[in-house]
């Protein structure tokens, strides 16, 4: 057997090992996402029950916020959708052997995540000014505050974790840990980030539009 054949076999063996490892990491991430699905479902179920029992209160909140309020949240939704797109484009760039391009896309992902959190904080200050609070007795809308802040703040926490994770992925990419044959770190982070996006898609519709 020639030296070239041995090297080729070793390379193939490495790729197979990376592929196997990738599948295991992804499966672990999907199991984590499954557990997160249950947690978010509890928040969503609690809000849905509140919404159907207190139509007038939710309607009054929507009236108080006006179209301006919807516009800010719609813009925020676009930020998160764009960040998801930037995420997959970053993965695609690295798969096309363009790591620098991938880093640029991932940086955009992190930046959009940060802007999302800042705008959500701004929205919270606006809601607090309209007496939508966590406490049942201080809340002007009889418990809407708790049902609203719990799922959206928990989601916001996930965005903050996602931004920190994204920065770590960028750091690793800069150190040359990813290549077109090894993108698992980026892919697993992507699964998390897209899940956070999917949760927002549902929260946006259920809380702000329905």
């Amino acid at each position: 057997m020639s030296e070239l054949t041995v090297q080729h076999d070793a390379h193939t063996h490495d790729l197979e090992a990376i592929s196997r490892m990738s599948e295991n990491y992804k499966f672990a991430m999907w199991l984590f996402i499954a557990s997160e699905t249950i947690i978010f479902s509890v928040f969503i179920a609690a809000y849905a029950v509140f919404r159907f029992q207190n139509k007038e209160i939710v309607h009054a909140v929507h009236e108080a916020l006006g179209f301006g309020g919807t516009l800010i949240v719609t813009f925020n939704t676009f930020l998160l959708l764009t960040s998801s797109w930037a995420m997959v484009m970053g993965l695609r760039s690295i798969q096309l052997d363009n790591v620098k391009g991938g880093i640029r896309w991932l940086s955009l992902t992190a930046l959009l995540g940060v802007i999302f959190v800042i705008l959500q904080y701004y929205e919270y200050t606006q809601l607090a000014a309209k007496s939508i609070t966590l406490g049942f007795e201080t809340d002007a809308y009889e418990g809407f505050g708790m049902h609203f802040y719990a799922p959206t703040a928990f989601h916001g926490f996930h965005v903050i974790v996602g931004v920190l994770w994204c920065l770590d992925v960028i750091r690793r990419a800069r150190k040359g840990q990813y290549s077109k044959d090894n993108v698992i770190g980026v892919e697993v982070f992507g699964l998390y980030w897209h899940f956070v996006d999917v949760v927002w898609i549902l929260l946006f519709t259920l809380i702000y539009l329905v």
Binding site: W30, L31, A34, T37, S41, A45, A48, V49
Partner: peptide, 24 residues
């Protein structure tokens, strides 16, 4: 991707949707 991933995600999602509908 692998169907095992879909199963790991869709089974708990289905149960969560059923529970939510029941509560409503």
């Amino acid at each position: 991707d692998s169907r095992a991933f879909a199963l790991a995600f869709l089974v708990p999602l289905g149960l969560a949707i059923l529970c939510t509908l029941f509560l409503i």
